[in-house]
Design a protein around this nucleic acid. Sequence first.
DNA 1: CTGAAAGCGCTAACAG
DNA 2: CTGTTAGCGCTTTCAG
Lengths: 355, 355
Amino acid sequence: MARLEDVAREAGVSASTVSRALSRPGMVAPATLERVRAAADGLGFRVNPAARALITGRTGFFAMLVPDLENPFYAASIAAAQDLAAQRERRLLIAVTDGSAQREQAAVHDLEEQVDGFILLSPVAGTTELKDLHRRKPVVVINRKVPGLTSFTVDTPGGLARIYDRLVELGHTDVAYLAGPPGSWMDRRRRATLAEHAGAPGLRVHIRGPVPPSFTEGARATADLLATGCTAILAYNSLLALGVMFELGRCGVRVPHDISVAAADDMAFAGLPGEPITAVHAPAPDLGRHAVAALIEMAGDASGRRPAGRTLPTTVRLTATLAAPRSAGQAGPVTAGGERTGRRDDPAGQAVDPR
Amino acid sequence: MARLEDVAREAGVSASTVSRALSRPGMVAPATLERVRAAADGLGFRVNPAARALITGRTGFFAMLVPDLENPFYAASIAAAQDLAAQRERRLLIAVTDGSAQREQAAVHDLEEQVDGFILLSPVAGTTELKDLHRRKPVVVINRKVPGLTSFTVDTPGGLARIYDRLVELGHTDVAYLAGPPGSWMDRRRRATLAEHAGAPGLRVHIRGPVPPSFTEGARATADLLATGCTAILAYNSLLALGVMFELGRCGVRVPHDISVAAADDMAFAGLPGEPITAVHAPAPDLGRHAVAALIEMAGDASGRRPAGRTLPTTVRLTATLAAPRSAGQAGPVTAGGERTGRRDDPAGQAVDPR
DNA sequence: CTGAAAGCGCTAACAG
DNA sequence: CTGTTAGCGCTTTCAG
């Protein structure tokens, strides 16, 4: 393996010049730069990351902790994050936590020495632990707001409210909500949104779950949801909704004729045949990219300045998978609505309070 | 951050002794060992991985390249691999390739300096490139046999053959196969298995696809599959099969009354309500563990000896999602069968020819 | 069994 | 703009 000094000899300069040419091209004369580059290419030189890390104290790795790889929302965030990281010459270390506080903590502990920062997706650790970690390494949080940390979230509650309003408008009186991951910050927010609306006249909200947000659990919970006597089902996320719809199909219950279905993010719905499913669209790839960009900024800036987080706007697609309940006498699907932006009374994409 | 020397001072020994105590406890007197450990714990000492890597040339990282995170087969392999790696004090660097040769190559190139070896899941690179890579770093392949490399595969073709036989037995004459990832070694093997059976009297096999093995693609391909006039559908994997069943349910086609469905691995089926789905069960977590174990063995052994690969046996569960075709006059589901082991004429778990 | 000494390959002052 | 110098924190001979 060629070393810096080999390149230096080949290019007729010193090792420091090669180092500078390769990592800070602006600090070197253009002619020298070219000679160094030619020599490096010729020898197939690649820096030894360990040697660099030893002296700089930075490894070029970020740890990204996710509850679950199969969840398309997370998978999309990861993929986008990894792309941006690769562009900026950083690498992402993915660790799966299964949504368990213990595994999350273990992963943080294991990785702490090896990374320049953490991206935490839907972390379950306490606020105190998270802030504590941030004192040691830069931390960015996705899908949860943690005061004092840079957080990127999506305005799903705003979108959910839109769907909820639509259901009321259509005449539904019994809506079931299938709750997501136990202990999840996002699920609490979604439930809170529903609770706010439960005051509407003659409206009942039946909460079932919580369950891990997977296709299988959606299918398994379906019988329970139907047993509530509801005419519409809202699911914590699209994976659960898909599982519900799968089971409904298997049991011969038709959507939307017999029941309306909607979900809080549409990651699993893209490209499905038939009528598009009513859902709140969340820009998962953007979350991943924002997090990486913020982490790079923090890790580069020794001053401890912390970039502001954001709540990204969601988009609601109201479609014919929502219809009036059969009992309301308005048979047949409703005409598909257009796209609308998330929460109405709250400017989308507003910055998180950077306390 | 405490350094080796701090621990040494605290324990009243030299830095070399601390180093030995921590990485080769057998080389140190028990009393010393204990004192060193106490001191290290007390100071919260953690080795600097960069410094260690600089001198040993080993980073403790393995790269694991996967086509897709959402695929439950891969997700299960990854999770199990990561668990074993963590136990053995190794870390796994997951990189997503999307099944693209270009991204795969880029990932290998990017990671080569940073890892002690590669685990390649369903790689698409040519045999020559793979062997070439193996000359530089230890390589273990999952889900594809590459002559000259340690490969771990599952005997899915054997299981598929069982399902196929069963379909013939039930009187099916038109079977559709939904092919998996374009260019995939596994898909070629599965098709070959079907081709061998297509000779059966009066039997037609309709191949559709290839498509990326996702739920969505399964749903989208369903109309095409039905258009073949088949009475049974086999899918490359369970994600596709699930998508097919979803769409069948949506369109009011009943399984198995109207059509039989089976898949080549059952990762996505576990725990689903209703009749268990006929599928070939593949031990995905074992693949991940085997790969990590083999890689650790290779990376530790400088002699260049290469552990043997294996083909893990599959299990077929024949259930009532397979029934006689309606045209055969045998209405109603068939009694569920028991579990049977994969390929019959081939001892399961046989070693790969270690050429 | 333990200590002293010599770097691993690179970057970051510091002069020039 | 470039070369010289001095390590980063650890492991590993080599003696004792």
